[in-house]
C-alpha cells in the first residue's frame, strides 16, 4: 500500500533528535528542506556541522540512493556532481515495536536552484552552468551511470564561485537499464523522441530540455509532440536562437557523449560576435561560403605553388653549380697530377 499520510505521520518538528541504531550518531533536526515521492529531506546538525538528512518509510529507496552515492564517491574523487555521503542508519522511533525508519546523511548543498539562480544573476550564466553540468555528466557517464531525472529542481548552484551540483540522485540508473525515475517534460519518451533506456543520450536530451526551460520557466504541455513542437518552441524565443543547433542535435540524440555536446556549446559561445552578425535563418550563409571560399583557396594555392617553384629553382641551381665545380675541381686535380 502506498502511504499517503507519511508527511503527517512522521513530520519531525525542529529540535527533534534522531539517533541511529547502528552507528549511534545523533542528529538534531533544524528544519524541513524538501518533500518528494521518496521521502523527506531535513536540515540537521551533527557536532555543529550542518548536514542534510533524508528519511523515508521506504527503506528500499534509501538503500538504492545510498548505493548510487557510494559509487559516485568511488569514481569521481573530490568534486562530485552529487552530495557526499556521511552516514546511513535506521532510527527507532519510541521504544515500541514499530518498524525503524531508514535514513541517510549527506552533505548540505546550499544555494538557489538552477532557474532561480538564472533569474537572479542573469541569463549570461546559462551557458556556463551548462558547460559545468555537461562536464560532470561526462564523468558520470564514463563511470557507467546515467543521471535519469535531470531537472532544474534537482540542480543547485552553490558558490561563490558558482558551481552546479545535484541534490537528488533517486533517478540515477546503471547504463543500459530502464530509467528508474523521470519527469515528463525532460523525458524523451514523453515527447516521442526515444526510449527510456539509460543511455548518455537520455541525459543529454534532458539537458537540452532544461536549456529550453530557461526561456520557458513555466514549461509547456505536449500538443503535437515530436521534434516539430520543440523546434517551434525554440524559434519563438530569440534568446535560444544562438543555441538552436546544439539543442536540436541533443534532442535528436545525435551527440554520442556529453563532452561533444560541451565542445559544441563552447564553440557556440566563443564565436558569438561572428554569429550575431549573421542572419539566423540559414538561407544565405551557405551560398556565401560556396562563392567566396573556393576562390580564396585557389589564390592561396597558386601563391604557394609559385613560392615552391622559386625555392626549388634555387636548389636546382646550387646543385648543378656544386656538381659542376666538383667535376671541374677533379679535372684540374687529375691534370695537375
Amino acid at each position: 500500500m502506498m502511504n499517503h499520510t507519511w508527511k503527517n505521520q512522521y513530520k519531525l518538528s525542529p529540535g527533534t533528535n534522531v539517533t541511529g541504531r547502528w552507528h549511534s550518531k545523533q542528529y538534531k533536526i533544524i528544519k524541513e528542506l524538501g518533500f518528494g515521492a521518496n521521502g523527506v529531506v531535513y536540515l540537521a546538525k551533527n557536532n555543529n556541522t550542518q548536514v542534510a538528512l533524508k528519511m523515508s518509510d521506504n527503506g528500499m529507496s534509501i538503500t538504492s540512493e545510498v548505493n548510487v552515492l557510494k559509487s559516485f564517491a568511488k569514481v569521481q574523487g573530490q568534486e562530485t556532481l552529487g552530495p557526499s555521503l556521511f552516514d546511513v542508519d535506521d532510527w527507532q522511533v519510541g521504544r515500541g515495536n514499530s518498524r525503524p525508519i531508514s535514513f541517510y546523511v549527506m552533505e548540505y548543498i546550499q544555494g538557489p536552484d538552477l532557474l532561480s539562480f538564472l533569474e537572479q544573476k542573469g541569463k549570461s550564466w546559462m551557458p556556463i552552468l551548462f558547460l559545468q553540468l555537461l562536464n560532470d555528466l561526462d564523468k558520470l557517464h564514463g563511470s557507467g551511470w546515467i543521471f535519469g531525472d535531470l531537472k532544474p529542481e534537482n540542480l543547485i548552484v552553490t558558490g561563490p564561485p558558482p558551481k552546479i551540483r545535484c541534490i537528488d540522485v533517486g533517478g540515477t540508473t546503471i547504463e543500459g537499464r530502464a530509467i528508474k525515475e523521470f519527469t515528463e517534460f525532460y523525458d524523451r519518451g514523453y515527447w516521442g523522441l526515444g526510449s527510456r533506456k539509460a543511455e548518455a543520450t537520455y541525459d543529454l536530451f534532458s539537458a537540452a530540455m532544461m536549456m529550453i526551460n530557461t526561456a520557458y520557466p513555466k514549461r509547456f504541455k505536449k500538443t503535437t509532440g515530436g521534434i516539430e513542437q520543440l523546434r517551434e518552441a525554440i524559434r519563438l524565443k530569440p534568446e535560444l536562437h544562438r543555441y538552436e543547433r546544439v539543442i536540436l542535435k541533443a534532442l535528436m540524440g545525435h551527440y554520442p557523449s556529453a563532452s561533444q555536446m560541451r565542445s559544441d556549446l563552447l564553440d557556440t559561445i566563443s564565436d558569438q560576435p561572428k554569429k550575431d552578425s549573421k542572419p539566423v535563418s540559414k538561407g544565405s550563409r551557405p551560398s556565401q561560403h560556396s562563392t567566396q571560399s573556393p576562390k580564396g583557396n585557389i589564390n592561396i594555392s597558386r601563391r604557394d605553388f609559385r613560392k615552391k617553384k622559386k625555392k626549388s629553382g634555387w636548389l636546382e641551381f646550387f646543385f648543378i653549380a656544386i656538381v659542376l665545380s666538383v667535376l671541374y675541381g677533379l679535372y684540374i686535380f687529375l691534370k695537375l697530377l
Partner: peptide
C-alpha cells in the same frame, strides 16, 4: 528480513533486487 541487516549489507541485497527488476 532485509531491514534486520546492517545498512552496509543492505546495499548488496538491493543490487540483487535492482537486477531482478530489470
Amino acid at each position: 528480513t532485509m531491514e534486520d541487516l546492517p545498512p552496509e549489507k543492505r546495499g548488496e541485497v538491493m543490487e540483487v533486487v535492482d537486477e531482478l527488476g530489470e
